[in-house]
Amino acid sequence: MHYSLSDMILDLIQNSIEAKAERITLDLIRSDNYLTVRLCDNGCGMTEGELKKVSDPFYTDGIKHSQRKIGLGIPFLIQTVEQTDGRFEIHSEKNMGTSLDIQFNLGNVDTPPEGDWPGLFRQAFCFEGDYELVINRKLVSDDKRETGYTLSRIELKEVLGDFNDSAAMILLRDYMRSQEEDLLSQLKEIH
């Protein structure tokens, strides 16, 4: 199993990219005790039959990785939410896309740590291809006040060019870290 929630979510984003999604949205909504993750894509989607098989770790479509016999992204997620009193739903329609709705219970002692979010965002932006990925990171305080930031891959690509150029990747890293640091400092002020 993955060490952190962010690593687990990376696998799921990668699923969307490999499903040839042109547009992916990731909402990460953090309240005191819960982390809600919504991931929607307009990729190739799955039939009802395929959808039933995704929870089986020994199922993979045989196309993405022709020599591989396992697919662990969703099974790891199911294992984690089941063990930690979380919740998870998946909806998919063939040729339309897939959406995941996950709630991690951060109050459960066995829930993995959240991990490095800006690091995840950078990684998720640096896969090859022209997909748009919009990330909404939001914190909700006890009295329902919301604060957060949004990242758009296309917007940042327009500013930085090729993310794989090390100089651009350094700026991308700094930009994402600055958004996160600002958010966390706002959180401290709220408390």
């Binding site: 500013v159 651009a168 700094d174 600055s178």
Partner: peptide, 21 residues
């Protein structure tokens, strides 16, 4: 680190590029 705006990021990138050239 203060929160960076997209405009600031754009300026940093273009100064980086002119430095490289």
């Amino acid at each position: 680190m203060a929160k960076m705006t997209l405009e600031e990021l754009r300026k940093l990138r273009s100064s980086q590029k002119s430095e490289m050239s």
